[in-house]
Design a binder for these strands. Structure first.
Lengths: 118, 118
DNA sequence: GGCACGCTTCGACGAACGTCAAGGGATGAT
DNA sequence: ATCATCCCTTGACGTTCGTCGAAGCGTGCC
């Protein structure tokens, strides 16, 4: 992992053959792992579920932080991870930034992992 | 994450409502995150794909290590992570330990993540 | 303009992670 | 019994991560 070249565009939905179909190339494995890492934190999993629950108009940081009992700086950090993995999108409305989940990115990830395409 | 209580049985397939259906409880989010973390590494993603590709009889550490160009100690460490997350099972045959993937655990994880049960 | 509010970035700290070399079991062969 | 082989564990190292306070930016309102 020290050898991780961070220069991969992770904002687009991952696109490679399912994990169970054949041995993944190094680069594909890295692409999958980077997205998984973005999601592999209890706070971020909960964030995703909150955003899905909130629906189309999105939720702002100032509402998420107290719900998670975390500082706004910390929540902002987590949202950045999710955004850089393409799992979330934020749009500014006035002074607020509203975050919405990106189901396509999550679907793409799920498709790579799912062994029951068998 | 510093507050992670490691005392959760992660060897069983995760079981909770899909992420997109409602806000996850702290404990459920942790359960999901722990499994994701087990998979959120390029080496482990590649390991899983190798095990799936190898099929029913499994693959031993001594065969995986050179294929990944890593020491056996490191591969053993990664296999342990996967085993503790229930994603992999190892059975001893003579001096070798053969590892096989556990599709049920992966399916359960995928089911929680998949937003297209919608 | 000036100010308040929301969000992000920066800097720092402790905890967790990935890696390997070295050593310690098991198991099977001689 | 001895030895070779495979595997796991331990200890150590450098890196990455999660968290927060403090400071910096954008936007809207007086």
């Amino acid at each position: 992992m020290p050898k991780a070249l961070p220069l991969l565009d992770t904002t687009e939905p991952v696109c490679c053959a399912p994990l169970a179909v054949g041995v993944l190339a190094d680069e594909d494995a890295l692409a999958v792992a980077l997205r998984l890492k973005a999601l592999a934190d209890p706070v971020r999993v909960q964030l995703m579920s909150m955003l899905f629950a909130a629906g189309e108009h999105g939720v702002c940081t100032c509402e998420l932080a107290p719900a998670l009992r975390l500082s706004e700086a910390t929540v902002s950090h987590h949202l950045r991870q999710l955004r850089e993995a393409g799992l979330v999108e934020g749009t500014r409305k006035g002074t607020n930034v509203f975050y919405r989940p990106q189901p396509d990115a999550l679907c793409a990830l799920v498709r790579v992992l799912d062994p029951t395409c068998c």
